[in-house]
């Protein structure tokens, strides 16, 4: 499957004189869309000419034909179930990671004691403990949210802590020389300086959140795109499972974009300056 990565080197402005093909191709998203369309076309061609059995690699046409047969309402139900868990887990991860990163930066003692613990938690495969979490937390969204949070919070802690510590030392000295209250050093200097770090972590974590929600759905759920894929696979409905995969990929991309937009909208200064 070809999921083209968002183009990070995209020129932000295409100020030019006359429109030509090269400029159209350079417009944001066009290259990505063309790549996806081209891959899908090649794939369809291969599936037809090489006679690949659908249980190995279904043709895109048979994948897309499953979309209407499921129906918009069902899709919406599955997407919403996954999205809700992914976003709540992501939100909870932010709510835990940022204060935790602040604590780690503020307190060397915590950094020495808590950090190794975090690394241990991170290196424990969440997939392995997911069934335990589900038995402990019971039915409902709670266990799935916790699993999602566990999967996506670590990059945020590390990146936020790095950002908080990467503040220019001069400003910290300025803060100290002013004898300002300690919390303002965090809110007015360190946190804003960490914004680029936090957002690069958020971009990674939001796609991890989708993975987390899917992992959780594999273990226990009655709705969601991950459940839908598992369910379709177990029914040997491979084209249907692939359709679910496409939806998941689209969700991840959309969330990634949403985080990028949020940064552009709320913290334009934190982006690399266009020259």
């Amino acid at each position: 499957m070809s999921l083209s990565m968002p183009d990070f080197s995209q020129p932000e402005s295409t100020k030019g004189k006359r429109p030509d093909l090269r400029r159209i191709l350079a417009a944001p998203g066009v290259a990505a869309i063309l790549t996806i369309l081209g891959t899908v076309a090649l794939w369809e061609l291969a599936a037809r000419t090489l006679n690949i059995p659908s249980y190995l690699l279904p043709a895109p046409s048979s994948i897309f034909s499953t979309f209407p047969s499921i129906g918009a309402e069902r899709w919406a139900g599955h997407v919403w179930a996954t999205l809700r868990v992914a976003l709540l887990g992501f939100g909870l991860a932010i709510a835990i990671a940022i204060p935790l990163a602040i604590a780690l930066v503020r307190s060397p003692a915590l950094n020495r004691t808590l950090y190794p613990l975090l690394v241990i938690v991170q290196s424990t495969p969440v997939v392995a403990i997911a069934p335990i979490i589900i038995v402990v937390l019971g039915a409902g969204d709670a266990p799935r949210i916790v699993i999602t949070t566990l999967i996506c919070f670590f990059p945020m802690v590390v990146s936020t802590a790095t950002g908080l510590a990467a503040t220019p030392p001069e400003l910290i000295e300025l803060s100290r020389s002013l004898r300002a209250p300690g919390f303002r050093e965090i809110t007015q200097i360190r946190l804003p300086f960490a914004v680029p770090y936090i957002f690069s972590a958020l971009k990674i974590s939001v796609t991890l959140a989708v993975i987390g929600a899917v992992v959780a759905e594999f273990c226990a759920s009655d709705a969601g795109v991950g459940y839908f894929i598992q369910f379709s696979t177990s029914m040997f409905k491979l084209p249907q499972a692939w359709a679910g995969l496409f939806v998941l990929a689209a969700m991840s991309l959309a969330l990634f974009q949403a985080v990028s937009w949020a940064q552009k909208l709320l913290f334009p200064w934190s982006l690399p300056r266009k020259r």
Partner: peptide
């Protein structure tokens, strides 16, 4: 149909 589609709403 609707309820199982919105599986999370089942308990409600």
């Amino acid at each position: 149909t609707m309820l199982s589609g919105l599986g999370f709403a089942l308990t409600a």
